[in-house]
């Protein structure tokens, strides 16, 4: 009984290899931070299309992969605080005699709404579709832009 208690008590029984492992992990983290490390893991929302949102000093960018979509298949609406993207992906019917080996591409409707933190100027929102990538450009409102403050 005594032996069991000693070995089950984490304070008394420490695994030296565990500590080595922790040290290795810390070293990896340090090295990762120094050399750029692995890219950020994508988090899926479960809603089509998947969006990537980035920003720089003056603009927000929303990007989505929409292969095969034409301009007229897309409907983008901007309200003061959100952007809605909806549309329909169409796959044209092929030859009636065609026999399929693979059918992985999908057609269908979609609609998604994304909230934008600040009030946006709906007049200045622009969208571009090139090579199946949709890019929505949202200029930041003056209040959202970082302002350089000079020290007097």
């Amino acid at each position: 009984m005594l032996i069991r208690r000693i070995f089950n008590n984490p304070a008394l029984y420490r695994n030296p290899f565990n500590e080595l492992e922790q040290m290795r992990r810390r070293m990896d983290m340090l090295a990762g931070n120094l050399f750029g490390g692995v890219p950020q893991q994508a988090v899926a929302s479960g809603v089509y299309p998947a969006l990537n949102v980035t920003e720089n000093k003056d603009t927000y960018y929303i990007r989505a992969e929409l292969p095969g979509l034409k301009q007229e298949d897309l409907d983008i609406q901007a309200t003061g605080k959100s952007i809605s993207i909806s549309g329909q992906k169409k796959i044209a019917p092929e030859d009636d005699n065609a026999k399929y080996h693979r059918r992985e591409r999908e057609a269908g409707k979609f609609s998604r709404i994304i909230d934008v933190a600040d009030n946006i100027d709906t007049e200045k929102v622009e969208a571009r579709l090139a090579d199946g990538i949709l890019t929505i450009t949202i200029p930041k409102a003056e209040t959202a832009k970082p302002r350089q403050i000079t020290i007097q």
Partner: peptide, 25 residues
């Protein structure tokens, strides 16, 4: 990273057609 594109492949008497979704290429 390396991804596999979604494809449709179909065959008629005279040809094989392949459609692949490769956004951004």
């Amino acid at each position: 990273l390396l991804f596999t594109p979604a494809v449709d492949i179909f065959e008629t008497e005279s040809q094989i057609t392949l459609l692949a979704d490769m956004p951004g290429v």
